[in-house]
Design a protein around this nucleic acid. Sequence first.
DNA 1: ACACTTCTATACCGAACGGTATAGAATCGC
DNA 2: GCGATTCTATACCGTTCGGTATAGAAGTGT
Lengths: 190, 190
Amino acid sequence: MSDNRAHILDQALRLFAEKGYDAVGVQQVVEAAGLTKPTLYHYFGSKQGLFEALIEERSQPLHEAVRQAAEYSGDVTLTITRLARACFSFALAEPLFYRLLLSTWFAPPSSEYSAAVRRVQERQYRLIAAMFEQAAHDHGNMRGRHRRYAVSLRGMIDTYIALWLQGHLALDDETLLHEAVHQFMHGIFS
Amino acid sequence: MSDNRAHILDQALRLFAEKGYDAVGVQQVVEAAGLTKPTLYHYFGSKQGLFEALIEERSQPLHEAVRQAAEYSGDVTLTITRLARACFSFALAEPLFYRLLLSTWFAPPSSEYSAAVRRVQERQYRLIAAMFEQAAHDHGNMRGRHRRYAVSLRGMIDTYIALWLQGHLALDDETLLHEAVHQFMHGIFS
DNA sequence: ACACTTCTATACCGAACGGTATAGAATCGC
DNA sequence: GCGATTCTATACCGTTCGGTATAGAAGTGT
Protein backbone atom coordinates (compact mmCIF):
# COMPACT_ATOMS: atom_id res chain seq x y z
CA MET A 1 0.00 0.00 0.00
CA SER A 2 2.51 2.60 -1.06
CA ASP A 3 -0.12 5.24 -1.66
CA ASN A 4 0.29 5.96 2.04
CA ARG A 5 3.37 7.76 0.82
CA ALA A 6 1.24 9.89 -1.48
CA HIS A 7 -1.25 10.60 1.31
CA ILE A 8 1.55 11.86 3.51
CA LEU A 9 2.82 14.09 0.71
CA ASP A 10 -0.68 15.46 0.13
CA GLN A 11 -1.26 16.35 3.75
CA ALA A 12 2.27 17.70 4.15
CA LEU A 13 1.72 20.00 1.17
CA ARG A 14 -1.54 21.28 2.55
CA LEU A 15 -0.22 21.89 6.04
CA PHE A 16 3.12 23.38 5.01
CA ALA A 17 1.36 25.70 2.56
CA GLU A 18 -1.24 26.79 5.09
CA LYS A 19 0.94 27.19 8.17
CA GLY A 20 4.58 27.10 7.13
CA TYR A 21 7.25 24.46 7.54
CA ASP A 22 8.29 25.30 11.09
CA ALA A 23 4.75 25.70 12.36
CA VAL A 24 3.76 22.17 11.32
CA GLY A 25 4.78 19.17 13.39
CA VAL A 26 5.47 15.72 12.04
CA GLN A 27 2.70 14.50 14.31
CA GLN A 28 0.15 16.80 12.63
CA VAL A 29 1.09 15.50 9.20
CA VAL A 30 0.70 11.83 10.01
CA GLU A 31 -2.51 12.45 11.95
CA ALA A 32 -3.99 14.26 8.96
CA ALA A 33 -3.01 11.30 6.81
CA GLY A 34 -4.46 8.80 9.30
CA LEU A 35 -1.08 7.17 9.94
CA THR A 36 1.71 7.20 12.49
CA LYS A 37 5.19 8.60 12.60
CA PRO A 38 7.24 5.49 11.82
CA THR A 39 5.48 5.27 8.47
CA LEU A 40 6.54 8.78 7.59
CA TYR A 41 10.09 8.14 8.74
CA HIS A 42 10.19 4.95 6.74
CA TYR A 43 9.48 6.78 3.49
CA PHE A 44 11.25 10.08 4.04
CA GLY A 45 13.83 9.61 6.76
CA SER A 46 13.28 13.00 8.35
CA LYS A 47 11.03 16.05 8.30
CA GLN A 48 13.49 17.77 6.00
CA GLY A 49 13.54 14.74 3.71
CA LEU A 50 9.75 14.88 3.52
CA PHE A 51 9.89 18.53 2.51
CA GLU A 52 12.58 17.99 -0.11
CA ALA A 53 10.76 15.03 -1.66
CA LEU A 54 7.63 17.15 -1.78
CA ILE A 55 9.34 20.04 -3.57
CA GLU A 56 11.33 17.85 -5.94
CA GLU A 57 8.39 15.72 -7.08
CA ARG A 58 5.67 18.32 -7.26
CA SER A 59 7.80 20.93 -9.02
CA GLN A 60 8.50 18.78 -12.04
CA PRO A 61 5.30 19.61 -13.95
CA LEU A 62 6.02 23.31 -13.45
CA HIS A 63 9.58 22.90 -14.59
CA GLU A 64 8.48 21.05 -17.71
CA ALA A 65 5.86 23.69 -18.51
CA VAL A 66 8.37 26.51 -18.11
CA ARG A 67 10.91 24.65 -20.21
CA GLN A 68 8.49 24.33 -23.09
CA ALA A 69 7.15 27.87 -22.80
CA ALA A 70 10.63 29.39 -22.68
CA GLU A 71 11.64 28.01 -26.05
CA TYR A 72 12.30 31.13 -28.07
CA SER A 73 10.36 31.15 -31.31
CA GLY A 74 11.38 34.50 -32.77
CA ASP A 75 8.57 36.45 -31.17
CA VAL A 76 9.49 37.90 -27.78
CA THR A 77 6.00 39.03 -26.84
CA LEU A 78 4.55 35.65 -27.72
CA THR A 79 7.21 33.78 -25.77
CA ILE A 80 6.73 35.94 -22.69
CA THR A 81 2.97 35.53 -22.93
CA ARG A 82 3.37 31.76 -23.12
CA LEU A 83 5.73 31.83 -20.15
CA ALA A 84 3.42 33.89 -17.97
CA ARG A 85 0.47 31.76 -19.01
CA ALA A 86 2.36 28.58 -18.13
CA CYS A 87 3.11 29.87 -14.64
CA PHE A 88 -0.42 31.20 -14.14
CA SER A 89 -1.91 27.88 -15.25
CA PHE A 90 0.28 25.91 -12.91
CA ALA A 91 -0.54 28.24 -10.02
CA LEU A 92 -4.25 27.87 -10.79
CA ALA A 93 -3.93 24.09 -10.86
CA GLU A 94 -1.70 23.81 -7.78
CA PRO A 95 -2.34 26.87 -5.63
CA LEU A 96 -1.14 25.20 -2.45
CA PHE A 97 2.12 24.17 -4.02
CA TYR A 98 2.77 27.55 -5.58
CA ARG A 99 2.08 29.23 -2.24
CA LEU A 100 4.61 26.91 -0.64
CA LEU A 101 7.17 27.73 -3.33
CA LEU A 102 6.68 31.47 -2.93
CA SER A 103 6.75 31.49 0.86
CA THR A 104 9.88 29.38 1.00
CA TRP A 105 11.56 31.42 -1.75
CA PHE A 106 11.17 34.56 0.32
CA ALA A 107 11.84 32.87 3.64
CA PRO A 108 15.05 33.42 5.59
CA PRO A 109 17.91 31.59 3.93
CA SER A 110 19.49 29.94 6.95
CA SER A 111 16.99 27.13 6.96
CA GLU A 112 18.48 24.01 5.42
CA TYR A 113 15.19 22.83 3.99
CA SER A 114 14.82 25.90 1.78
CA ALA A 115 17.76 24.90 -0.42
CA ALA A 116 15.45 22.58 -2.36
CA VAL A 117 13.21 25.48 -3.31
CA ARG A 118 16.18 27.61 -4.22
CA ARG A 119 17.31 24.90 -6.63
CA VAL A 120 13.91 24.90 -8.32
CA GLN A 121 13.88 28.67 -8.76
CA GLU A 122 17.44 28.70 -10.00
CA ARG A 123 16.63 26.15 -12.68
CA GLN A 124 13.69 28.21 -13.93
CA TYR A 125 15.70 31.41 -13.83
CA ARG A 126 18.32 29.87 -16.10
CA LEU A 127 15.70 28.79 -18.63
CA ILE A 128 14.25 32.30 -18.79
CA ALA A 129 17.64 34.01 -18.94
CA ALA A 130 18.66 31.73 -21.82
CA MET A 131 15.49 32.72 -23.67
CA PHE A 132 16.29 36.42 -23.33
CA GLU A 133 19.84 35.77 -24.45
CA GLN A 134 18.58 34.15 -27.62
CA ALA A 135 16.11 36.96 -28.15
CA ALA A 136 18.95 39.45 -27.90
CA HIS A 137 20.27 38.08 -31.21
CA ASP A 138 17.19 39.57 -32.88
CA HIS A 139 16.96 42.67 -30.72
CA GLY A 140 20.36 44.24 -30.25
CA ASN A 141 19.14 46.74 -27.69
CA MET A 142 18.39 43.87 -25.29
CA ARG A 143 21.95 42.59 -25.35
CA GLY A 144 23.66 42.32 -21.97
CA ARG A 145 20.42 42.80 -20.09
CA HIS A 146 19.08 39.26 -20.25
CA ARG A 147 19.80 38.64 -16.57
CA ARG A 148 17.92 41.72 -15.47
CA TYR A 149 15.05 40.89 -17.80
CA ALA A 150 14.80 37.33 -16.55
CA VAL A 151 14.85 38.58 -12.99
CA SER A 152 12.18 41.20 -13.48
CA LEU A 153 9.94 38.94 -15.55
CA ARG A 154 9.99 36.28 -12.84
CA GLY A 155 9.37 39.03 -10.32
CA MET A 156 6.37 40.28 -12.23
CA ILE A 157 4.90 36.80 -12.66
CA ASP A 158 5.36 35.94 -9.00
CA THR A 159 3.96 39.29 -7.96
CA TYR A 160 0.78 38.65 -9.89
CA ILE A 161 0.47 35.13 -8.53
CA ALA A 162 1.08 36.31 -4.99
CA LEU A 163 -1.64 38.93 -5.37
CA TRP A 164 -4.00 36.33 -6.75
CA LEU A 165 -3.25 34.05 -3.80
CA GLN A 166 -4.27 36.90 -1.52
CA GLY A 167 -7.49 37.46 -3.42
CA HIS A 168 -6.58 40.79 -4.96
CA LEU A 169 -7.10 39.81 -8.59
CA ALA A 170 -8.35 37.06 -10.90
CA LEU A 171 -5.58 35.04 -12.47
CA ASP A 172 -7.73 33.16 -14.98
CA ASP A 173 -8.20 36.29 -17.06
CA GLU A 174 -6.63 36.47 -20.50
CA THR A 175 -7.06 40.25 -20.53
CA LEU A 176 -5.05 40.61 -17.35
CA LEU A 177 -2.38 38.34 -18.78
CA HIS A 178 -2.02 40.44 -21.92
CA GLU A 179 -2.07 43.70 -19.97
CA ALA A 180 0.69 42.40 -17.73
CA VAL A 181 2.81 41.30 -20.66
CA HIS A 182 2.11 44.53 -22.52
CA GLN A 183 3.22 46.55 -19.53
CA PHE A 184 6.39 44.47 -19.26
CA MET A 185 7.15 45.07 -22.95
CA HIS A 186 6.14 48.70 -23.33
CA GLY A 187 5.80 50.20 -19.86
CA ILE A 188 2.90 51.99 -18.27
CA PHE A 189 2.68 54.67 -20.96
CA SER A 190 1.26 52.35 -23.50
CA MET B 1 16.72 50.52 32.54
CA SER B 2 14.08 50.32 29.87
CA ASP B 3 16.64 49.86 27.08
CA ASN B 4 16.36 46.19 27.95
CA ARG B 5 13.18 46.49 25.94
CA ALA B 6 15.19 47.78 22.98
CA HIS B 7 17.78 45.01 23.37
CA ILE B 8 15.04 42.43 23.20
CA LEU B 9 13.61 44.05 20.07
CA ASP B 10 17.06 44.14 18.47
CA GLN B 11 17.74 40.47 19.06
CA ALA B 12 14.21 39.47 18.12
CA LEU B 13 14.59 41.30 14.81
CA ARG B 14 17.88 39.60 14.09
CA LEU B 15 16.68 36.11 14.96
CA PHE B 16 13.28 36.39 13.30
CA ALA B 17 14.89 37.75 10.13
CA GLU B 18 17.56 35.05 10.06
CA LYS B 19 15.49 32.00 10.99
CA GLY B 20 11.82 32.93 10.79
CA TYR B 21 9.21 33.53 13.47
CA ASP B 22 8.29 29.93 14.13
CA ALA B 23 11.87 28.68 14.19
CA VAL B 24 12.90 31.07 16.96
CA GLY B 25 12.01 30.34 20.57
CA VAL B 26 11.34 32.95 23.22
CA GLN B 27 14.24 31.45 25.14
CA GLN B 28 16.65 32.13 22.29
CA VAL B 29 15.62 35.77 22.12
CA VAL B 30 16.13 36.51 25.79
CA GLU B 31 19.39 34.56 25.90
CA ALA B 32 20.72 36.61 22.98
CA ALA B 33 19.71 39.75 24.85
CA GLY B 34 21.30 38.51 28.09
CA LEU B 35 18.00 38.52 29.94
CA THR B 36 15.30 36.11 31.04
CA LYS B 37 11.81 35.32 29.94
CA PRO B 38 9.79 37.24 32.55
CA THR B 39 11.42 40.45 31.33
CA LEU B 40 10.25 39.79 27.81
CA TYR B 41 6.77 38.89 28.96
CA HIS B 42 6.64 42.01 31.09
CA TYR B 43 7.20 44.27 28.10
CA PHE B 44 5.40 42.38 25.34
CA GLY B 45 2.93 40.01 26.97
CA SER B 46 3.46 37.22 24.48
CA LYS B 47 5.65 36.10 21.60
CA GLN B 48 3.09 37.45 19.17
CA GLY B 49 3.00 40.75 21.04
CA LEU B 50 6.77 40.98 20.70
CA PHE B 51 6.52 40.44 16.97
CA GLU B 52 3.76 42.98 16.51
CA ALA B 53 5.57 45.64 18.54
CA LEU B 54 8.66 44.99 16.44
CA ILE B 55 6.83 45.43 13.16
CA GLU B 56 4.81 48.43 14.30
CA GLU B 57 7.73 50.39 15.69
CA ARG B 58 10.40 49.59 13.14
CA SER B 59 8.17 50.12 10.13
CA GLN B 60 7.40 53.73 10.95
CA PRO B 61 10.51 55.24 9.33
CA LEU B 62 9.73 53.29 6.15
CA HIS B 63 6.14 54.42 6.20
CA GLU B 64 7.18 58.04 6.65
CA ALA B 65 9.73 57.80 3.82
CA VAL B 66 7.18 56.26 1.47
CA ARG B 67 4.60 58.86 2.44
CA GLN B 68 6.94 61.69 1.53
CA ALA B 69 8.22 60.06 -1.65
CA ALA B 70 4.70 59.26 -2.90
CA GLU B 71 3.61 62.90 -2.91
CA TYR B 72 2.83 63.50 -6.54
CA SER B 73 4.66 66.51 -7.92
CA GLY B 74 3.50 66.51 -11.52
CA ASP B 75 6.33 64.32 -12.78
CA VAL B 76 5.48 60.61 -12.74
CA THR B 77 8.98 59.39 -13.53
CA LEU B 78 10.47 61.57 -10.82
CA THR B 79 7.92 60.45 -8.24
CA ILE B 80 8.44 56.78 -9.03
CA THR B 81 12.19 57.25 -8.87
CA ARG B 82 11.89 58.92 -5.48
CA LEU B 83 9.64 56.09 -4.30
CA ALA B 84 11.96 53.33 -5.40
CA ARG B 85 14.92 55.19 -3.95
CA ALA B 86 13.14 55.60 -0.62
CA CYS B 87 12.48 51.85 -0.41
CA PHE B 88 15.99 50.97 -1.56
CA SER B 89 17.51 53.33 0.99
CA PHE B 90 15.45 51.91 3.81
CA ALA B 91 16.32 48.36 2.78
CA LEU B 92 20.00 49.28 2.69
CA ALA B 93 19.77 50.84 6.14
CA GLU B 94 17.65 48.07 7.68
CA PRO B 95 18.29 44.89 5.69
CA LEU B 96 17.22 42.60 8.51
CA PHE B 97 13.93 44.39 8.96
CA TYR B 98 13.16 44.46 5.26
CA ARG B 99 13.92 40.76 5.02
CA LEU B 100 11.51 40.14 7.87
CA LEU B 101 8.84 42.21 6.14
CA LEU B 102 9.27 40.37 2.85
CA SER B 103 9.33 36.88 4.32
CA THR B 104 6.25 37.51 6.43
CA TRP B 105 4.44 39.19 3.55
CA PHE B 106 4.83 36.06 1.45
CA ALA B 107 4.31 33.67 4.34
CA PRO B 108 1.16 31.57 4.73
CA PRO B 109 -1.71 33.75 5.85
CA SER B 110 -3.15 31.60 8.62
CA SER B 111 -0.58 32.76 11.12
CA GLU B 112 -2.05 35.38 13.43
CA TYR B 113 1.18 37.24 13.81
CA SER B 114 1.43 38.07 10.11
CA ALA B 115 -1.59 40.40 10.25
CA ALA B 116 0.71 43.15 11.52
CA VAL B 117 2.86 42.94 8.41
CA ARG B 118 -0.19 42.86 6.19
CA ARG B 119 -1.35 46.12 7.77
CA VAL B 120 1.99 47.75 6.98
CA GLN B 121 1.93 46.66 3.36
CA GLU B 122 -1.68 47.71 2.96
CA ARG B 123 -0.90 51.22 4.21
CA GLN B 124 1.95 51.62 1.75
CA TYR B 125 -0.13 50.22 -1.09
CA ARG B 126 -2.78 52.87 -0.47
CA LEU B 127 -0.21 55.67 -0.57
CA ILE B 128 1.14 54.47 -3.89
CA ALA B 129 -2.28 53.85 -5.41
CA ALA B 130 -3.35 57.37 -4.41
CA MET B 131 -0.26 58.76 -6.14
CA PHE B 132 -1.12 56.98 -9.39
CA GLU B 133 -4.69 58.18 -9.11
CA GLN B 134 -3.51 61.76 -8.92
CA ALA B 135 -1.10 61.19 -11.79
CA ALA B 136 -4.00 59.93 -13.89
CA HIS B 137 -5.37 63.47 -13.88
CA ASP B 138 -2.40 64.50 -16.03
CA HIS B 139 -2.17 61.28 -18.03
CA GLY B 140 -5.59 60.15 -19.15
CA ASN B 141 -4.34 56.83 -20.49
CA MET B 142 -3.47 55.80 -16.93
CA ARG B 143 -7.00 56.29 -15.66
CA GLY B 144 -8.58 53.24 -14.00
CA ARG B 145 -5.30 51.40 -13.83
CA HIS B 146 -3.87 52.96 -10.68
CA ARG B 147 -4.46 49.83 -8.63
CA ARG B 148 -2.61 47.63 -11.10
CA TYR B 149 0.19 50.15 -11.35
CA ALA B 150 0.55 50.40 -7.60
CA VAL B 151 0.59 46.64 -7.35
CA SER B 152 3.20 46.13 -10.04
CA LEU B 153 5.41 48.97 -8.84
CA ARG B 154 5.51 47.52 -5.34
CA GLY B 155 6.15 44.13 -6.90
CA MET B 156 9.07 45.47 -8.90
CA ILE B 157 10.58 47.28 -5.92
CA ASP B 158 10.28 44.24 -3.67
CA THR B 159 11.64 41.97 -6.38
CA TYR B 160 14.77 44.08 -6.67
CA ILE B 161 15.20 44.24 -2.90
CA ALA B 162 14.68 40.49 -2.58
CA LEU B 163 17.32 39.87 -5.22
CA TRP B 164 19.70 42.23 -3.47
CA LEU B 165 19.11 40.39 -0.19
CA GLN B 166 20.13 37.18 -1.95
CA GLY B 167 23.27 38.78 -3.32
CA HIS B 168 22.22 38.86 -6.97
CA LEU B 169 22.65 42.60 -7.51
CA ALA B 170 23.88 45.82 -5.93
CA LEU B 171 21.11 48.01 -4.61
CA ASP B 172 23.21 51.11 -3.94
CA ASP B 173 23.54 51.80 -7.65
CA GLU B 174 21.86 54.86 -9.11
CA THR B 175 22.20 53.39 -12.60
CA LEU B 176 20.28 50.28 -11.61
CA LEU B 177 17.63 52.45 -10.00
CA HIS B 178 17.12 54.49 -13.15
CA GLU B 179 17.15 51.42 -15.37
CA ALA B 180 14.51 49.81 -13.21
CA VAL B 181 12.30 52.90 -13.28
CA HIS B 182 12.87 53.32 -17.01
CA GLN B 183 11.82 49.76 -17.63
CA PHE B 184 8.72 50.28 -15.52
CA MET B 185 7.81 53.39 -17.49
CA HIS B 186 8.75 52.33 -21.02
CA GLY B 187 9.16 48.56 -21.03
CA ILE B 188 12.09 46.46 -22.14
CA PHE B 189 12.19 47.81 -25.72
CA SER B 190 13.74 51.23 -25.58
C1' DA C 1 5.09 -24.03 5.00
C1' DC C 2 9.00 -21.09 5.41
C1' DA C 3 12.43 -17.49 5.51
C1' DC C 4 12.66 -12.71 4.05
C1' DT C 5 11.77 -8.11 2.95
C1' DT C 6 8.54 -4.28 3.33
C1' DC C 7 5.58 -1.67 5.88
C1' DT C 8 3.09 0.04 10.10
C1' DA C 9 1.74 0.69 15.21
C1' DT C 10 2.69 1.08 20.33
C1' DA C 11 5.28 3.27 23.38
C1' DC C 12 8.89 5.90 24.50
C1' DC C 13 13.22 9.24 24.47
C1' DG C 14 15.49 13.83 25.84
C1' DA C 15 14.96 18.43 24.59
C1' DA C 16 12.62 22.50 23.65
C1' DC C 17 8.24 24.86 23.33
C1' DG C 18 5.21 29.16 25.18
C1' DG C 19 4.02 30.83 29.41
C1' DT C 20 3.81 31.78 34.66
C1' DA C 21 3.84 31.82 40.08
C1' DT C 22 6.68 33.71 43.30
C1' DA C 23 9.80 36.62 45.21
C1' DG C 24 13.68 39.72 45.30
C1' DA C 25 15.88 43.97 43.50
C1' DA C 26 15.57 48.76 41.88
C1' DT C 27 13.38 53.07 41.38
C1' DC C 28 10.11 56.54 42.31
C1' DG C 29 7.07 60.04 44.84
C1' DC C 30 6.82 61.87 49.18
C1' DG D 1 13.14 56.81 55.45
C1' DC D 2 9.08 54.48 53.45
C1' DG D 3 5.26 52.63 50.72
C1' DA D 4 4.22 51.63 46.09
C1' DT D 5 5.24 50.67 41.54
C1' DT D 6 8.27 48.89 38.03
C1' DC D 7 11.33 45.62 36.61
C1' DT D 8 13.95 41.13 36.67
C1' DA D 9 15.54 36.26 38.13
C1' DT D 10 14.78 31.37 39.87
C1' DA D 11 12.28 27.62 39.17
C1' DC D 12 8.64 25.43 37.38
C1' DC D 13 4.11 24.18 34.61
C1' DG D 14 1.97 21.02 30.93
C1' DT D 15 2.57 20.23 26.08
C1' DT D 16 4.74 19.42 21.91
C1' DC D 17 8.91 18.92 19.35
C1' DG D 18 11.79 15.61 15.98
C1' DG D 19 13.09 11.08 16.17
C1' DT D 20 13.44 5.92 17.45
C1' DA D 21 13.63 0.92 19.63
C1' DT D 22 10.84 -2.84 19.31
C1' DA D 23 7.78 -5.82 17.51
C1' DG D 24 3.88 -7.32 14.87
C1' DA D 25 1.43 -7.47 10.34
C1' DA D 26 1.47 -8.07 5.33
C1' DG D 27 3.08 -9.50 1.19
C1' DT D 28 6.61 -12.22 -1.74
C1' DG D 29 9.58 -15.84 -3.62
C1' DT D 30 10.51 -20.65 -3.14
